[in-house]
Design a protein around this nucleic acid. Structure first.
Lengths: 339, 339
DNA sequence: CTGTTAGCGCGTTCAC
DNA sequence: GTGAACGCGCTAACAG
């Protein structure tokens, strides 16, 4: 039925091990024999069974990618970048999409990836317990969002610097009453929301603006959440003159809320986002740009390097640049700022 | 190092075959022994090697998902829906992200999925040659976008009906000069763009509007492509009063182009999209809604059913509903329509 | 350079 | 209800 290595061996008049060597490009096979084997294999449509190869060699040629939610723009792009690099290198990608708390728990207790992968790439930093579970796999580990973690090669951005850029931009325009739409950390305990908040508070303090806790609202990192959050901000006694949203999707939800209230950015409220989503340009959204697919690709590269040379020197943390992209949703406050 | 079935067997004082039976829930094991084995396995952190299990049983517990581009909103959501169902059923997902023509060709000639998967889910219909390659795998096959194909269980929408809804809506508002931003079929030969075009032409004919080929522009199914396409339409001698974009992302690009020209939808040009992207609501975009994640989930379900009961009756094609979502980008033409 | 021999870690008979 | 033997398809170590 399905053609095996012995079929190829028989048809080519050689032994199975020679076929194995020839097809995997190992040396010790005459060019003539190699050519014949390659031809025969192709004509028979032979592909080595990875299960058998994995069992015999101990290497699976597969890399597990743990994503929190591939449907979200950000993670979809990161995955895209990573997948490209990995499949180019001949690795297959086993996708674990851990959207719900349930799925997440199940994954980390049952560890279905055990013995199945040569390495794991986490698109979102795991909490300590989860990290320990991953380390027990005994394979190279990388992570893309949420900062460094012992045992993991990390790729990320300086969240605090990015958020500082965003809030300082608002301050420079003259805003002092600045709201923030944050993403709750949710079931995952990543540091990103906290880091960005830290920067928000620091810049406010530095500008001599006082912090009003009612100006911080959770937007859940979704469009709808951003819309709800902005609606809530607008309903407060003294609404902010500017808002920093921790993601572009929330920022766009916020813009929607403004429109529903017949308000406009930046005339009534300035809005700055984070990510540089492909639709941010369409919305004219001022935002903090970060390389997205590139983070996935870079993490994948670092993982491959570890696989090739397990004992070589490997960077623990690789940081990518962020920068402010000025568009049309930020401007000085209408009644030129307090102070 | 890594704990194997014999380790568990030894620790539990039974044979390996009993461990195998117990852990997979097969009958013929006393409840007492099963409990002991389960406990021992858990304490040792044992997970069966899928490679070995696959080799021995012939089943891989893995399903290949072939996506054209996970970074695109639509496919990311479909993948999300499918992954959920598959992993809930205990299957692992092997992701093949075939964005470039190269990657696609490599995949279909080398067939890395051969002997690795129990079934394949294609998130975009393959052309005949690719379909033949997949059929040669001898496993259940499903497809989500692009209509039915022999040998595949298909899940999709009635593209013609959806497009008809969109264009007829514009006609009913009084538009007669209606442009279309289409997606080229690109390297893939899916039927979707053609079907939607067919409907566009039919409705125009039915309305007695004549077809101007210069009003059909390719937008490549991307935001930027949509922006370019609308720019081109606006530059024509007699610009359209309304535009049907074959995807929301292109429609949003088109809205962007309008804004750049200081024009507004629907005042100057009406725009209707297709998909009901999560940001379509934010943009106020009138569009044709289709279930997205649900299509992936449904296709995954049908695949699982085939896996369970290979000889049972299986639907060849399951169609999902589409409907018009009225928002704020469509209105009667400014100088109330011809006729 | 090439063939032979042994497993890799399981599931699956078949005995008991 | 349980254990022993065998083989899945391949790679690795050794012989030749």
């Amino acid at each position: 039925m399905t053609v095996s290595i012995t079929d190829v061996a028989r048809a080519a008049g050689v032994s199975a091990s020679t076929v194995s060597r020839a097809l995997r490009g190992r040396e010790g096979v005459s060019e003539e024999v190699r050519a014949r084997i390659t031809a025969v294999a192709a004509s028979l449509g032979y592909t080595a069974s990875r299960s058998a190869a994995a069992l015999a060699s101990g290497r699976t040629s597969t890399i597990g990618v743990v994503a929190p939610y591939v449907g979200r723009w950000f993670f979809g792009r990161v995955l895209d970048g990573a997948e490209q690099v990995l499949s180019d290198a001949g690795y297959d990608v086993l996708l674990y999409n851990l959207g719900s708390t349930d799925a997440r728990k199940r994954f980390f207790t049952r560890m279905p990836a055990r013995k199945r992968v040569d390495a794991v790439l986490c698109l979102l930093i795991p909490d300590e317990e989860e990290a320990a579970a991953l380390r027990s796999l005994g394979v190279p580990l990388a992570v893309t969002v949420g900062g460094p973690r012992p045992g993991f090669t990390a790729v990320g951005i300086d969240d605090r610097a990015g958020a500082t850029l965003a809030v300082r931009h608002l301050v420079n325009l003259g805003h002092r009453r600045i709201g923030m739409i944050s993403g709750s950390s949710g079931p995952q305990r990543w540091t990103t929301p906290g880091e960005r908040r830290r920067a928000y508070l620091d810049v406010l303090a530095e500008a001599g603006a006082d912090h009003d806790p009612s100006l911080e609202v959770d937007g859940d990192f979704t469009v709808k959440g951003g819309e709800r959050a902005m609606t809530e901000l607008l309903a407060s006694v003294r609404p902010p003159t500017a808002v920093f949203a921790q993601s572009d999707e929330m920022a766009m939800g916020a813009l929607r809320a403004l429109r529903m209230h017949r308000l406009k950015a930046p005339d009534d409220v300035s809005v700055v986002g984070f990510d540089d989503h492909e639709l941010a340009e369409v919305a004219g959204l001022t935002t903090i740009a970060q390389p997205v697919a590139e983070q996935g690709a870079e993490a994948a590269c670092l993982l491959l390097r570890q696989l090739e040379d397990p004992d070589g020197p490997h960077p623990a943390y690789r940081q990518m640049p962020v920068n402010l992209v000025l568009r049309e949703t930020t401007a000085p406050p209408r009644t030129s700022g307090a102070r």
